[in-house]
Design a protein around this nucleic acid. Structure first.
Lengths: 230, 230
DNA sequence: GCATTTATTATGTCTGCACATAATAGCGGA
DNA sequence: TCCGCTATTATGTGCAGACATAATAAATGC
């Protein structure tokens, strides 16, 4: 028979007590041992539950002092960033893309700086327009470092750079930033907009650990939202 | 003495093998028991390492079939969403805010719809301008449900609604969405902009579990970015 | 051949115990 | 009073064993 208090039940019960203000912000909660006794389970089970809550930012735990309810609870929002093709198909739309440009050239100083490369370094510049139901969805402006990408495909018309990278250079480090920007005249033209409007922009830089791989700027069509539950 | 293979070491070693393509995407990796034997540790230790990697989206695990390297690795970006005051102070700027409006009224249909409330329901409408070094930083347009907020402060000039909510109604459920929008004339005026530009917008809805608490629209001053490491 | 039951297998979780580690409290001596 | 050592304490991690669960493969019946 299933034990009445698995670690998920304990996590839920602790959350309930915090929400019910039985345990108030800043206040210490019982030790793992005390709770194990109360719930009639092993300390490891309580530990698992409390560890998850600490990870979520609900509890602050310190050796010797014990666990306390976080005073300034920091909400942690977590987003999935799928391949563009899967993002479009996930909306029930058909995916397509157009390769706009593919050539080696020296990128602007801002890009080189972000990647930490020498000023005269040539990179592979790729611009791709992603389509959802044949309508512009996302404009991708990417710089690739050929030095760390041994077997690049001959051309990126069969598979988008986006997808090729996820499949061939996965599990890299990097950072991402979201912001808003007005569409440049060219962006407006490529996205099929009659007038310049506010666009959602995501910028990513990725590394293998020591060498830079790619810097990309993603400009989404109007109305794009990135959404998640808290 | 510390065992040579703790769960973190195992997680790192598995990641190394995946990055080195010793274990390729889609391919099965050894069972927990086999790896426990290889690393000379208990199965629980391997389990902990692999569980974390599955949570990060690197592995896909299924009972009976075992673990395999994810074919379409989904990047998971995680953002901290602090109280606005702490966000401003964290940048080394001084925080301030101005309460622009505070009155009970019937919100627009879109807001009622998002909160799932009756059409004639009155809510408390609060508009706050948050300042960083006395310069407009964020425009907050919030609707509060007084029915579930028993002891609201007399006025929100001493502590911003934002902070009051985090301190008094923490650990709620909710969702958040990021998007881009052009500043309305009024938004432009309040943020001190001479011309309408693209602004970063965050919209949140929060619940106690059954009853809606608040819906808020946060319009950030130009240049705002939300950034994180992957 | 096909559907249903049964056995097998890897992961998921739990227990009870042990020791490591970090942070704190208390003590003793100068 | 202050400094430094030691003891204490709660969490962090580990082990070996056990059973639960879900998914698959094999065996069975028709």
């Amino acid at each position: 028979m299933k034990p009445p208090f698995g670690w998920e039940a304990i996590r839920a019960e602790v959350m309930r007590r915090i929400r019910a203000r039985e345990w108030q912000p800043g206040q210490s909660i019982p030790t793992e041992e005390q709770m194990a006794a109360e719930f009639g389970c092993a300390r490891a089970t309580v530990n698992r539950a409390l560890r998850e809550l600490a990870l979520a930012g609900v509890l602050e735990r310190r050796r010797k002092s014990g666990s306390r309810v976080a005073l300034n609870p920091v909400r942690k929002a977590s987003f999935d960033i799928p391949v563009t093709r899967l993002e479009v198909e996930g909306r029930g739309q058909s995916y397509g893309f157009v390769l706009l440009e593919e050539r080696e050239q020296v990128p602007p100083a801002a890009v080189l700086d972000r990647l930490g490369l020498a000023a005269n370094q040539e990179l592979l510049h790729l611009r791709t327009l992603h389509l959802a139901d044949a309508v512009p969805f996302l404009l991708e402006d990417r710089w690739l470092n050929p030095a760390v990408l041994p077997d690049l495909p001959r051309d990126f018309r069969a598979m988008s750079v986006n997808e090729w990278l996820v499949r061939n250079m996965p599990y890299t480090y990097g950072d991402i930033a979201f912001s808003a920007a007005s569409a440049t005249p060219e962006e407006a033209r490529l996205l099929g907009l009659t007038e310049p409007v506010a666009l959602f922009v995501a910028e990513r830089t990725t590394w293998t650990g020591e060498a830079p791989i790619t810097a990309v700027r993603l400009v989404y069509a109007p109305g794009y939202r990135v959404q998640t539950v808290l």
